[in-house]
């Protein structure tokens, strides 16, 4: 039966205990390293010490994180917590896709990488039809043209652009 304390808790139960424990553990670990990772400077006022604000931040994290954990109405892990942990882990796959795209751009260039990345990820998400394929190609093209060609955002040309003939090479590095 749900208790009054559980009813009043803002948010779902799943994952709360894992997050609160993890947050407190990381905060306490960081706080324990404060003397090694920051410096105490002699003849400097207390408020101007380089250690002062990291101490405020980490102190607040530990104190409020501990109080949050104490106030939590649950003290035991459930199967739902484990399922939630798996869900969090699944997201790492998409973070991996993102990082692969990041590492691909300096090698292949922005346009080719985007033209590979968007349709592949669209396919991975279960859209197998030709309509979504062409839509993803169109989206990739529009993104590159709007951001690199028109808005001139700072994205370097790919290494393979070096193999292109003179005029085309400059055009690709500047605009695509």
């Amino acid at each position: 039966m749900t208790t009054e304390r559980e009813r009043r808790f803002v948010g779902p139960r799943r994952g709360q205990l894992i997050f609160a424990l993890g947050f407190l553990a990381v905060s306490a670990l960081l706080l324990s390293q404060i003397t090694g990772q920051t410096t105490w400077v002699d003849k400097t006022a207390f408020f101007a010490q380089p250690r002062f604000w990291p101490a405020i931040g980490l102190g607040g994290m530990v104190l409020l994180g501990a109080l949050h954990l104490r106030k939590m109405p649950w003290r035991r892990f459930t199967a739902q917590d484990r399922e939630e942990l798996v869900k969090w882990a699944r997201v790492i796959e998409f973070a991996g896709w993102f990082m692969a795209y990041v590492l691909l751009v300096p090698v292949l260039g922005y346009l080719p990488s985007t033209l590979i990345f968007v349709p592949l990820l669209t396919r991975r998400m279960g859209y197998r039809g030709p309509r979504m394929f062409w839509l993803s190609i169109a989206f990739a093209l529009v993104v590159v043209v709007v951001f690199k060609t028109f808005l001139s955002v700072k994205i370097p040309g790919g290494m393979i652009y070096e193999y292109l003939p003179g005029g085309l090479r400059g055009f690709f590095i500047l605009y695509l």
Binding site: R8, G59, M61
Partner: peptide, 19 residues
């Protein structure tokens, strides 16, 4: 409301990150 402890802890995380 009802989340002020975790909101405070996360604000403290922000303060720490900027240092």
């Amino acid at each position: 409301k009802g989340q002020s402890l975790i909101a405070g802890a996360l604000a403290a995380l922000g303060i720490f990150i900027q240092t």
